[in-house]
Nucleic acid binder design. Structure first.
Length: 403
DNA sequence: AGTCCACAGGAAGGGCAGGCGA
DNA sequence: TCGCCTGCCCTTCCTGTGGACT
């Protein structure tokens, strides 16, 4: 019989079984999607394109702004960070100073408004600013003065740039793309990254021409390319005898179905390994990938829900407790019930509508405007998760609200 | 063809928390 | 400390919408 990982009630230290057992992982860090490897397979063309665009920085010139687009998990951010690391390495001892700033515009409370974007960039260059209270133009001027205090090139990478654009428009991009005209010593160069292929078309023509000086498209990986990527990581990440070849094939195939998402493939591989280890199995097998697939989906959605404000959670609980295809009016009635029973302030239907929209954007639910003829126009709302996940969400929210 | 419904969603403004300068 | 300014969250008010019904 397999010895339990954790010794309970036998007098031994409960962790001794875990420590004694050999780990399936050799270096778990390389299986993380944020890990930057020494080489990025199947992205030679893109690396060479980006390098040739930013290379003039090494001779003291300002590189053109670059706009990079491609679906999720195609290696856009990774490739950019890889190229910039190489750039910094070469430029280590050079006279002209090059700095880079990576900002994820989708991060709530970090860079999801123009104010927060400039506050974040100021913090990056060592200027602490309050989270609120200052006029945005004061922050803009402070940023301007700070970077222009010496000769330097700053490369700003705005990841998920479409998220910020959707929220505040393209004024901030206009300001950033014009900033070089006013700077005396420093220069900035922008790299915009997005999953939204149509994003550039929505921009003002002036912003479009300056941001889209150079455009690079990242095509999705196919199953074979994903397999290559995974094999590279498996070599460094796992003790190879501990992992079935079928596992790599399955992870690659599943991720290829999801528009060639390498991040998904790596997550599947890592979580499958974690599950195998947690179960005390000696090898990562196909069954662990199946379990990983479900776990990743559930974890992701539950993490989002747990971090939502109480009002959004109450609205979601109302939706869960409505019929399968519920309408805005039904949700609002249920929501009011929940608020009354739980002593929560009732927001207006207008605001609840916005909260529903926000959760739609987070892919927690789907809402579609429908017309019911003389019975008015409304939105049909349904959860965009499986029954299993929906039950898990219900159980979590049940502990927070009475109904 | 006109009416009607139940909202959607834009615009404007209020209240609050927080920073700044006098 | 106070008045003023800001961003953010929210409400109020308003117009627009589209298809069933008359």
């Amino acid at each position: 019989m397999q010895k339990s990982l954790y010794n309970l009630n036998n007098g031994e230290n409960i962790f001794s079984g875990y420590v004694e057992r050999k780990s399936l992982f050799k270096n778990k860090r390389v299986l993380s999607s944020s890990f930057i490897p020494d080489n990025i397979p199947h992205r030679d063309a893109e690396i060479s394109q980006i390098s040739s665009i930013i290379a003039p920085a090494l001779r003291g010139y300002t590189p053109n702004n670059v706009f990079i687009y491609g679906t999720c998990g195609t290696g856009k951010s990774l490739t950019v960070q890889f190229v910039l690391n190489q750039l910094h390495e070469v430029n280590k001892n050079a006279d002209n100073e090059i700095k880079s700033m990576y900002i994820n515009c989708k991060m709530k409370k970090v860079a999801d408004t123009e104010y927060r974007l400039f506050a974040h960039m100021l913090k990056e260059i060592g200027h602490d600013v309050p989270d609120t209270g200052l006029p945005t133009d004061v922050l803009y001027n402070k940023f301007f003065e700070t970077i222009d205090s010496k000769k330097q090139l700053i490369i700003i990478i705005l990841d998920e740039i479409d998220a910020l654009f959707k929220k505040v428009g393209d004024e901030f991009l206009y300001n950033l793309t014009r900033i070089n005209l006013e700077l005396k010593q420093a220069q900035i160069s922008l790299i915009g990254i997005t999953n939204d292929l149509s994003f550039l078309n929505d921009l003002d023509a002036r912003v479009k021409s300056s941001l889209g000086e150079e455009e690079i498209l990242f095509k999705p990986y196919n199953a074979m390319q994903l397999k290559d990527i995974l094999m590279n990581r498996v070599k460094e990440g796992f003790n190879q005898s501990d992992i079935d070849n079928v596992v790599v094939n399955k992870c690659a195939a599943l991720a290829a179905q999801e528009h060639g998402d390498a991040r998904r493939a790596l997550d599947l591989l890592r979580v499958a390994g974690e599950l195998a280890e947690r179960l005390g199995d000696v090898k990562v097998e196909e069954k662990h990938v199946n379990m990983a697939e479900e776990k990743i989906d559930i974890d992701k959605i539950i993490e989002i829900i747990k971090t939502q404000p109480k009002q959004s959670q109450a609205v979601l609980y109302a939706i869960i407790n409505c019929d399968e295809k519920c309408l805005t009016g039904d949700v609002f009635e249920k929501y009011k019930d929940i608020c009354l029973k739980n002593n929560i302030k009732i927001l207006t239907q207008r605001r609840v509508g916005d909260l529903i929209n926000e959760m739609d954007m987070l892919s927690i639910l789907t809402s579609k405007v429908i017309s019911k003829g003389r019975y008015g126009r409304t939105r049909a709302i349904s959860l965009s998760v499986s029954d299993n996940v929906s039950n898990k969400i219900r159980n979590i929210l049940k502990t927070r609200f009475e109904l």
